[in-house]
Write a protein that binds this DNA or RNA. Sequence first.
DNA 1: CGGGCGTCAAGAAACGTTTTCTAAAAAACG
DNA 2: CGTTTTTTAGAAAACGTTTCTTGACGCCCG
Lengths: 340, 340
Amino acid sequence: MTNDRRITIRDVAEASGHAVSTVSNALADKRHVNEETRKHIQEIAKTLGYRPSTIARALRMQTSSTIGVLVADVANPASPEFIRGIDDVAQREGCNILLCNTDGDERRQIGQMQALLDRRVDGMILLSQHTESPEIRKLLDATGSFVLVQRRSHRFRDDYVGSDNMQGTRDSMNYLDSLGHRRIGFVTGPQQSSTAMERLEAYEQLVSELGLDADPELVFQGDYTIDSGIRAMHYFAGLSDRPTAIIASNDVNAIGLQDAAVELGLRIPEDFSLLGCDDIEIASLRRIDLTTLRLPKREMGAGAAELLIRRIRTKKTGTPREVIFPTHLTIRGSCAAPRR
Amino acid sequence: MTNDRRITIRDVAEASGHAVSTVSNALADKRHVNEETRKHIQEIAKTLGYRPSTIARALRMQTSSTIGVLVADVANPASPEFIRGIDDVAQREGCNILLCNTDGDERRQIGQMQALLDRRVDGMILLSQHTESPEIRKLLDATGSFVLVQRRSHRFRDDYVGSDNMQGTRDSMNYLDSLGHRRIGFVTGPQQSSTAMERLEAYEQLVSELGLDADPELVFQGDYTIDSGIRAMHYFAGLSDRPTAIIASNDVNAIGLQDAAVELGLRIPEDFSLLGCDDIEIASLRRIDLTTLRLPKREMGAGAAELLIRRIRTKKTGTPREVIFPTHLTIRGSCAAPRR
DNA sequence: CGGGCGTCAAGAAACGTTTTCTAAAAAACG
DNA sequence: CGTTTTTTAGAAAACGTTTCTTGACGCCCG
């Protein structure tokens, strides 16, 4: 509107009668610069409302104090919690985050990563992203510092933050077993998802350990969407020998199962016990009332950010670290003893 | 890991035996540069895997091709839909978006806006943000181009994208009136929210037009959270002369009302008809089954982005534009004729 | 045949910082 | 009092681009 040009360090220099370099040093509180002139310069800078250009600084310092965050699905209620955790520590460490939504689409993810690299982010956090293909791998290499969350590579060893899928699945299975279920359906996530695979493996192991029905029919290949839950419920309901309990791939998926159950005139937990994963906010609603495996999402986000920042600061020294968070079975009303 | 230094335009210049400026022109497909050398340079650039630094470019061009998006609450299921709309057109126009979560907190918003300015974004889109205080106003001025969404200033005239609150409220009220409700409760959003105030005004006008009970007791001062919905339901249930229907501030709020109703042993729609606003995904779940006013969120996001980009391109010429989207009453099972 | 013009390419300046290097003044030291 | 060291401040280079200016060359036209 009024005066368009941003005021630069140069303006401060002229106004204070000092050199640009002196101003820079004075404002950064570095070097040997006389206390008096420092005060003076800081005064001037303040009254002028000077704000250094992040861009110019990034160009000069070759570091942007920015970290890229790639999330598979912002619309999933679990995502904002992770992001919040990341943001908390990023803020604290003086970093900004650049948030990208990939929709779980690899092409899109590549585009986003490329854009982040062009923007010279200091590092990336990848929530449930693709990690294997050579193209992705090349981009990760170029990134230097990155942390994977909830999906790790089986071929490469990276910094990783995840949940204890063995323990979580064990808790879930033990609980259903203790209620008397012998036939437990399982909706598994995408095959590229290491978390999904680990849980599936744990499920199979527990089925064997507990001597439950081991039937490939009981595993439904799904993903993390409501739609997939709806399909899964139609599938399980159509089986001649139905399971009495179902473990969903996550809460959103469980809600789909639940919804389809209502549609089919089936009741939860009477006809099916239902067990989710994540513990999103609405899982606790009385109309939903979902027993679920709670993930400490905010803590995991914070953990990922801390891991990343350490990695950035120590400049890729040291072997990859993995941080695994415990889960907590949160019991609500969607599970009961089988009637059959 | 291997070779850390990024390859620059200079590397391309040397490799191709041309000057930096020529390379720049060749890659930008601009100016007069021989078709042959252009091909040659583009070839070299490709094999070298050259990618221009967004940062350097931004510094030189004084424009970052980045737009800041401030959202009050990423966790609200409606937010990602707006964002998606914004992202769609931003992507198409070659812009990246910088997403910030403000929690509806003014201090936080100021900090985020400051950071965006330091980053020299070309413009901002503010979803339900503070717009009035002098401090915010100064930052908006400095931003140059910005678009408000769902919350406008009553003192300033800005580019704005919103929904037709009069028409929407009219549709809702007419619908409840046609079902036979004479006493309609209303949860209003925060007083700083222009949308909330417009709806409240519309509500009052409609109450008068339709000759319904006009009782200040029927208006509950809430906000857009589940918690506020819970409090509202306790409030309405505690009235000696209860309403027979309640209009929530939005869907998330309605879900809170619904949940508290279950807690209090009240049934919806038998004891209370309930009407939301937004039409978030879970509103259509059979367990929720919420009649609600649908907002075209994705379209609104896209509209905001288009408005902003036009504003940026035409460099703040022209009077402020307002784009108002119509709403659509989506009838599900949470409303019925009153029993009393 | 000389001047103007069009085409192409190179050179140099600029964007706003930080940092390195240099210079001057002040202080310390013998 | 001269020399060295320390403190302070300024000049200049650099980060990686784009764009403005300059220059060389060939061609057309009077």
